[in-house]
Design a protein around this nucleic acid. Structure first.
Lengths: 238, 238
DNA sequence: CGATTGGTTGAGCCCATTCAACGAATGTGG
DNA sequence: CCACATTCGTTGAATGGGCTCAACCAATCG
């Protein structure tokens, strides 16, 4: 079965409750389905969109893993987020009708594209959908607030502990193990997201490993002592 | 004339084009007015809302200046933004129906409150309003992306230069001088927002002053060489 | 008036960076 | 298949940018 350019159908999607249609009735989901665009495969390393691309669709991650990268004129880049299944990509583009960051697949992935024009029309006749979407946008704002807190007032160790716990929680929410995980991103990616250098990330992982909090073998990470790790998220972990 | 609990009227508001009704037709603004809530004065130092407060209304800054503060359990706080006239407060609360940060007036201010329930209903019958609101939410996401870039990959000098230029631009957009400004916030506030300590902010302002980029006298700041200052925003300002 | 808040400046320190060497894993072309 | 290049990760040593601690000043306020 070729997933390329297949019509998306939320109705029988396994991650329906993680994704945009969460909380909608069957009839509403059916209506949404009629306005869904295509399903699209994105091989590892490929761009889903780039800075400057015209904004036509939102994307819901159906499977796989993405990063979004904000490019600075002088070459520096900042990773603004990692997206897993059920999460939306492209929200930043609504404002200017153009994408303002790159979205790159970190493993073979698939997304459901939703024409934003049609989506807005649908929102006009479906109160629940519009309400859910407002909440999704607001949640993204809250998430970024928390990243600002992390970048603005935490030490390196706290940043990484927060990152790992957050990742574990998101896995758990998707009924995946929150103890053993494979990191989809490089040490440099983690560093970019956390405002650290890759060497610092590597050292911190080694430290957590030595202290018995984690078992780290390359990109395989096993959380051995979640409580202790959670304490490291704050300054006062005496 | 007492501004307290007066009905808001966008129709004849001087900052209409900076605010939520920007781009709407006269009829549409009239419709919006009928659903606007009250106008509210917030004296300097007062909280507009606090963490945990139930979310009922969005607020549009009518006059004055606010900061939003995210509190961490261990006492640390992070300023997530400064809001001037025409900008919206409370977007973060849509997700959980509760405010997740504090909003504090940095000078005597006034806001227009908009019941969010009524606002969502109005969005159902006014496509333009809903579209504008989606863009506002998206713009906030983009703004926070830029702060993440600033916090994650810029040196202290670049952070402050960016901050000052941004502030100047926002003043200009409101037809206020973008050369001479009075900072509404303390050095500590600036530091919190930029992920720096207050002493560092003070030293940087002195440095810019010594180098002839700025004239700094307390909270009065005059930009003497905007081009040179703008160059300091990036690493490669040879 | 003393008390408090906000701001400046100096001296020393420390955490994360920089620079560097090395190892492991993967892929590629002859 | 091996030789080689490339990417990714780890670890060490030295550096430095921003922090901490501290003293001091100015303005405001009760």
């Amino acid at each position: 079965m070729n997933l390329h350019d297949l019509k998306s159908v939320c109705g029988n999607c396994t991650i329906r409750e993680l994704c945009l249609p969460a909380g909608l009735s069957d009839e509403e989901v059916h209506l949404l389905d009629q306005h869904m665009d295509h399903r699209q495969v994105v091989p590892k390393g490929d761009y889903l969109y780039r800075v400057g691309d015209p904004f036509r669709s939102l994307f819901a991650v159906s499977s796989g893993f993405f990063k979004t990268v904000l490019l600075h004129e002088d070459g520096r880049g900042q990773i603004t987020g990692f997206q897993m299944m059920g999460e939306l990509l492209g929200l930043e583009a609504i404002h200017s009708d153009h994408h303002v960051c790159d979205a790159i697949a970190l493993e073979d992935s698939a997304v459901c594209a939703i024409s934003f024009d049609q989506f807005e029309q649908l929102g006009q006749i479906m109160v629940n959908l519009q309400h859910r979407f407002n909440k999704d946008l607001s949640r993204e704002i809250v998430r970024e607030h928390n990243v600002m807190m992390l970048l603005g007032s935490m030490r390196s160790e706290e940043r990484l502990a927060n990152f790992l716990i957050d990742l574990a929680d998101r896995h758990a929410h998707r009924h995946q193990s929150s103890v053993e995980m494979t990191l989809r991103m490089t040490r440099e990616d983690i560093g970019s997201y956390l405002g650290l250098k890759l060497e610092t990330v590597s050292r911190l992982l080694s430290r957590f490993h030595d202290e018995g909090l984690l078992e780290v073998r390359g990109r395989r990470v096993k959380i051995l002592d979640r409580n202790a790790l959670a304490l490291r998220r704050t300054e006062t972990h005496n």
